[in-house]
Amino acid sequence: TDVTFHVNGRNLHLKGADEELLRRIEELIRRGADIEELEKAVKEWEK
């Protein structure tokens, strides 16, 4: 799945995201995470 999140005026584009990653990103956004936290979560998922 390709999806782009718009967070605090910045874009986080995910290519090939699975349901697990999407749920994790949505949860972080609900908690008020900043873009750096979201990018870190994506990097951890990519490993």
Rank of each mutant, 00 (worst) to 15 (best):
A17C: 13
L28N: 01
E39F: 12
E46H: 12
R31W: 12
V7K: 02
H13M: 09
H6N: 10
E26I: 15
A33N: 06
E27W: 15
L14S: 00
F5A: 04
I35K: 01
E20Q: 14
R23L: 08
L14C: 01
W45L: 03
H13P: 01
E39I: 13
V42P: 00
L38M: 07
A17G: 04
V3G: 03
E26V: 15
G9W: 03
R30P: 01
G16N: 14
E19M: 13
T4Y: 06
D2M: 05
T1K: 14
H6M: 10
H13D: 03
R23K: 10
E44H: 11
E20W: 15
E36C: 06
F5P: 03
L12W: 14
G32V: 02
H13G: 01
R10Y: 14
T4K: 04
V42D: 00
R31A: 09
L22Y: 05
N11W: 15
K15D: 03
L14I: 14
A33W: 13
E27A: 14
L21P: 00
R31Q: 11
D34R: 06
K15H: 09
R10K: 13
R10H: 15
K47C: 07
D18R: 05
A33E: 06
L14A: 01
D34T: 09
K47N: 11
V7A: 02
R24K: 08
N11P: 15
E26S: 13
W45F: 08
R24A: 08
F5C: 13
L21Y: 01
K15R: 12
E27L: 15
E19D: 11
A41F: 14
G9F: 03
D18I: 02
I29A: 03
V7Q: 03
K47P: 10
H6F: 09
G9Q: 02
D18Y: 02
L21F: 07
E27N: 12
D2P: 02
K43S: 12
G9M: 02
L21T: 08
K43T: 09
E44L: 14
E26R: 15
V42F: 03
K40F: 12
H6E: 13
R10W: 13
D18W: 01
E39A: 06
E36F: 08
R24Q: 09
F5V: 14
G32A: 03
K43L: 12
L21S: 02
E36H: 08
E46W: 10
L28I: 03
T1C: 11
G16M: 06
K15G: 02
D34N: 08
V42C: 04
E46K: 14
H13N: 05
H6I: 14
E39Y: 13
G32M: 04
G32L: 04
R31V: 06
I29H: 04
N11M: 15
K43V: 11
I29T: 02
W45K: 03
V7L: 05
G9Y: 02
V3H: 14
K43I: 11
A17E: 02
L14F: 04
N11C: 15
E20G: 14
W45A: 05
E39R: 06
I29E: 00
L12H: 00
D2E: 08
E44G: 09
N8P: 01
N11D: 14
I29W: 13
A33T: 06
A41S: 07
V7T: 02
L21N: 01
K47S: 09
L38Q: 00
A17Q: 02
T1L: 13
G16S: 08
L12C: 01
E27T: 14
E37H: 08
W45M: 05
T4D: 14
I25D: 00
E20H: 12
N8E: 04
W45P: 02
E39N: 06
V42Y: 03
K15P: 03
G9T: 01
R24F: 10
G32E: 04
H6K: 08
K40D: 13
E37M: 12
L28P: 00
A17L: 05
A17P: 09
A33C: 11
R10N: 09
R24C: 06
L28C: 03
L14G: 00
L28V: 01
R23W: 11
